[in-house]
C-alpha cells in the first residue's frame, strides 16, 4: 500500500469515523446535561422563539451592523466559500462518489473553483489576522482558536496546491491534513458548526416563551 492509498483509505475512514462518533458523542453529552423545565406561565411560543432566533442571528441587527460588518463579510466569505468548495469541487465529488456515496452531482467549473477559493481564503485570512490585532479578540483568543484557524487554512491551502492533480505527494499532503482536521474537529471549537444551533435555539426558546423576540 502506498502512502497515498493509506491516507485516503484506512486513515481517512478512521478519521471520518472519529469525526462522526466524536461529534455525536459530544452533542449528546451536552444535551444529556439536561435542565429544568421552565415552570413560569408562558407569554409566547418557545418553539417559535427558537426558530426565530436561529434564523435571525444569521444576520446582525441593524444597530450592530457597523460593528459587525467586518466579521459579517469576512465570515460569510469564508464559510460560504468553504461549503461551496467542500461540496462542489470536482475532485471532492469524485472522491465521495468513488469511496463513500456511489453517486455524484454537477461540479464547479475550474474558474469558479478558483474564484470561490480566493473568496474563502480572503475571508479566512481576514478573520485570522483580526484575532491578533483586535484588542478584544486578542485578549480572549486561546490556542484552540488559532489551532482551528491554522488547521483549516492548511487544509484549504494544501487542497489548492494540489490543483494540478498530477503529483501523488501533493494529493497525499492534502489528505493528511484533511484526516488531521477530521480527527481534531470534535475536540475543538470547530464544534460550533453544530452548537451554534443549540445556543441560538436555547436563547430563542427561553425568551420566546417570555414574549421577547431576541
Amino acid at each position: 500500500m502506498t502512502f497515498l492509498q493509506f491516507v485516503e483509505g484506512p486513515l481517512f475512514y478512521v478519521a471520518a469515523a472519529i469525526f462522526v462518533v466524536g461529534v455525536v458523542y459530544r452533542l449528546i453529552g451536552i444535551l444529556r446535561l439536561g435542565g429544568e423545565r421552565d415552570l413560569a406561565r408562558p407569554n409566547g411560543s418557545a418553539t417559535g422563539g427558537a426558530i426565530l432566533t436561529v434564523l435571525r442571528h444569521f444576520v446582525p441587527r441593524r444597530t450592530f451592523w457597523r460593528g459587525s460588518s467586518f466579521h459579517f463579510v469576512a465570515g460569510y466569505a469564508f464559510h460560504l466559500g468553504l461549503f461551496v468548495l467542500l461540496l462542489l469541487a470536482a475532485p471532492h465529488v469524485a472522491f465521495l462518489q468513488e469511496r463513500v456515496l456511489g453517486f455524484g452531482w454537477p461540479v464547479l467549473p475550474h474558474w469558479a473553483f478558483i474564484l470561490t477559493a480566493e473568496v474563502a481564503f480572503a475571508g479566512l485570512i481576514m478573520l485570522w489576522v483580526r484575532r491578533f490585532v483586535d484588542p478584544v479578540q486578542k485578549l480572549i483568543s486561546t490556542s484552540g482558536d488559532y489551532a482551528a484557524t491554522i488547521l483549516t487554512f492548511l487544509v484549504m491551502l494544501t487542497g489548492c496546491l494540489a490543483l494540478q492533480e498530477s503529483h501523488v505527494a501533493l494529493r497525499a499532503t492534502h489528505m493528511v491534513f484533511v484526516d488531521i482536521w477530521l480527527i481534531y474537529f470534535p475536540f475543538s471549537r470547530l464544534i460550533h458548526t453544530f452548537t451554534f444551533f443549540f445556543s441560538r435555539a436555547q436563547t430563542g426558546a427561553t425568551y420566546g416563551r417570555r414574549g421577547a423576540k431576541l
Binding site: C160, L161, Q164, S166, H167, A169, L170
Partner: peptide, 17 residues
C-alpha cells in the same frame, strides 16, 4: 517538481488577492 507544481498553483491562486 512537486514543490514547483504546488507553488505555481498557490501563486496563481493568491495572485489576485
Amino acid at each position: 517538481s512537486v514543490l514547483t507544481s504546488a507553488s505555481m498553483q498557490g501563486h496563481n491562486l493568491f495572485g489576485p488577492l
